[in-house]
Simulated assay, not measured.
Amino acid sequence: MEEKLKKPLHVKEGKVIKTPSEKNVTSSASGTDTGKTSNDKSMKEKMGEKKENMSNKIHEVKEGASKKTEDIQEGISDVTEEANKTKEEYEKESEKEGMTPAEKVLNDIVTRFRQGTGQINDAISDYNTKPEDGKESKSNKPKKALKPLVDVLETNDTVYLIADISGVKKDNISIGISKNSVELTVKYKEDAEIEDAKFTQKERSYGETNRIVKLSSEVKVHEAKANFRNCTLTITLPKVVEDITKVDIDD
């Protein structure tokens, strides 16, 4: 008697019937696939957002760099323009004085150095000058005539020199003017104003003092004017203005 083969319970008429355990496995696998797809989608969205943020930041950095480059270029342009302007002024001034621009620069440096040295020497001299009796004390310190304090003002066509000079008359003030400097000489009283009196303290200016003031512009020497009122000396110096001659163009 042939032994009949028993078909599995899950096979029926050519169709596969899943057992409860297989159904659970399939359902679980399906759920896992769905969750994985959802996670992948979320990751892609996040990556997309990060990429967009990065692109925005790169764009901002590029804009900032471009702005800074423009500012730097404008600054360089301003410096170049100022340098060219200064160069042109030096060339004009040096041509007037019969020097090359390099010679004028060197001359200006030497002049400023001499002025500074002169002021230092004057200050030292004020403290090193011995009194008339040769003795130094708290009441009789070394003293000599002080140099007048001077302000120099300029307009487009005029230079003004204003000096404070007290204790003298205008006849005791001497003014010497060249095309680029003014020399002031002031003579103060040398003796005591009271007859048969001696100094126990001496702080006012006595004797003669001299000061040279350099001018930054060339002036018309013969058109200078001076006024002395209320201890203030005012000197008016017209500037030398370049004469411009128009030239006709021939056909």
Rank of each mutant, 00 (worst) to 15 (best):
M1G: 07
M1V: 10
E2R: 15
L5H: 13
H10W: 04
K12F: 10
K12A: 12
E13A: 06
E13R: 12
G14D: 01
V16M: 04
I17E: 08
S21K: 14
K23R: 10
V25Y: 09
V25F: 09
S28L: 15
S30V: 08
G31T: 15
G31K: 12
T32N: 12
G35N: 09
N39F: 13
N39G: 12
D40T: 14
E45W: 06
K46V: 11
M47N: 14
K51G: 14
I58E: 12
A65D: 09
K67R: 15
K68L: 07
K68E: 12
D71V: 12
Q73V: 13
I76F: 09
D78C: 13
V79M: 10
N84S: 09
N84L: 13
K87V: 03
E89Q: 10
E89N: 15
Y90V: 08
E97K: 11
M99N: 06
P101D: 06
A102F: 08
E103C: 08
K104N: 11
V110Q: 07
R112V: 07
R112M: 07
F113Y: 09
F113S: 07
R114M: 10
T117A: 07
D126V: 00
N128F: 04
N128H: 07
K130H: 07
E132F: 03
G134P: 00
K135P: 02
S137W: 11
N140F: 08
K143I: 04
K144E: 00
K144C: 05
K147A: 02
V150C: 06
D151M: 08
V152R: 00
V152T: 05
Y160G: 02
D164I: 10
K170F: 02
K170A: 00
N172Q: 01
I173T: 05
S174T: 12
G176K: 00
K179S: 14
K179H: 15
K179I: 12
E183F: 04
L184K: 00
V186K: 00
V186E: 00
K187E: 00
K187I: 00
E190L: 11
D191H: 13
A192H: 09
E193F: 10
E193Y: 09
D196P: 07
E208D: 03
R211Y: 10
I212E: 03
V213C: 01
V213Q: 03
V213L: 01
S216K: 03
S217I: 02
E218S: 13
E218I: 13
V219G: 01
H222S: 04
R229N: 08
E242Y: 06
D243G: 05
D243Y: 10
I244M: 11
T245W: 04
K246F: 05
V247W: 06
